[in-house]
Nucleic acid binder design. Structure first.
Lengths: 198, 198
DNA sequence: TTATATTAACTAATGGTATTAGTTTTTGCA
DNA sequence: TGCAAAAACTAATACCATTAGTTAATATAA
């Protein structure tokens, strides 16, 4: 029923994450992974459906971890505080796991059931964090997209060294989040204005 | 002095852009490019320094075009209007040239002189567009980073189909920009408050 | 007009990649 | 003790980038 213990998926993923985070996602090849695991590359096909299968599993693995740290960040918080901690957790994850973070964004098939489930859970989490702003209907979902755009954009550009300026990155990030939050408050105020014009 | 007319760099870049925008940046290989140009792949080495050289030239080419459309977008505009048009131009470029846009973000060497020059010019352009908000010192540069994060994040996620929700993307983008601008105004107001407390 | 130098494009060869087919070997269980 | 399952293996194929060395076209000088 179960011959040869050998490799297992968690071991493989751990090694792949290590390569991705230290050498970059492009360096995660079946060849480099097999070498790291002291195995011949065809052997990996017993655990993973080729390179594309490995990338899918890596993406799911990353999304799970990202959702986890985001979930931890918002427990017992609400409003600006929750959003700020959420943002810090997101950026911290991308910094700690640049390759794995990269992998989460190359989910080959958005059709993948697991990916869709995790994406949905993440959206729900952020919607809850944004409750304090009393956004109605689709507005909350648009805000989720906005926040995600901002977090991903900052993380992505930071990783690629896209910010050429000699300026403190943490300050930039804090200001960006502050500006967005101030904007959310303003939108909330405007919405109230409309409802009951003096 | 000049034998065999044959290929030239503009022709090569045009073909590469076409492949990138239709099939994705990963599909831009020396092999696929050579086939499209009805030439053997080693011949490309007479014009471009291998695959990495091609990617560099593609990145510069994309940055030039992006800077151009952004420049056109802000002429004779200022304040919210300028920023909104800038944002719309950025997103429109990324939508029209997904592969080329992708290439601009994988500049292998941020040391590249041409890349640095274009990046600097782009920053200057955006700083000018943000003049109306009277941001002092580094604040303007932080705001540039913020705006760029938001624009890149939205474009990147849109391209990767990262937004699973069935929600109008243009509305999301407009709201995001509005929120950011409202935030900028609020920051400006707060700064004035500090300067001359009533 | 002819000869030469320049250089683009070529062929051939090498090494790295993923992938498939088919074989060997280990190990749990009958 | 032997059998079946499955993991890891070897061998082979196809595609990729890249380099070395050859062929051929053309602008310019003689």
């Amino acid at each position: 029923m179960s011959p040869r213990i050998g490799l297992d998926l968690p071991t493989i993923l751990q090694a792949a994450v290590e390569i991705a985070d230290t050498r970059g996602l492009e360096e995660v090849t079946l060849a480099s992974l097999a070498q790291k695991l002291a195995v011949r590359s065809p052997s990996l096909y017993n655990h993973v459906n080729g390179l594309s299968g490995l990338r899918s599993k890596l993406a799911v693995h990353g999304l799970e971890q990202l959702l986890h740290v985001m979930t931890q960040a918002v427990v017992d918080r609400s409003g600006d505080d929750a959003v700020r901690e959420l943002g810090k957790a997101y950026v911290a994850f991308a910094r700690a796991h640049p390759g794995l973070y990269d992998a989460t964004l190359r989910a080959p098939d958005p059709q993948d059931e697991e990916v869709r489930r995790l994406a949905g859970e993440t959206v729900d989490l952020v919607v809850r964090a944004l409750q304090a702003y009393e956004l109605k209907d689709d507005a909350a979902l648009h805000a989720v997209r906005g926040l995600r755009s901002l977090l991903h954009g900052f993380s992505s550009l930071e990783q690629r060294g896209g910010f050429g300026l000699p300026l403190d990155l943490d300050v930039s990030f804090r200001l960006l989040l502050d500006t967005f939050l101030a904007g959310l408050h303003e939108m909330k105020r405007r919405a109230k204005e409309e409802t009951k014009p003096s």
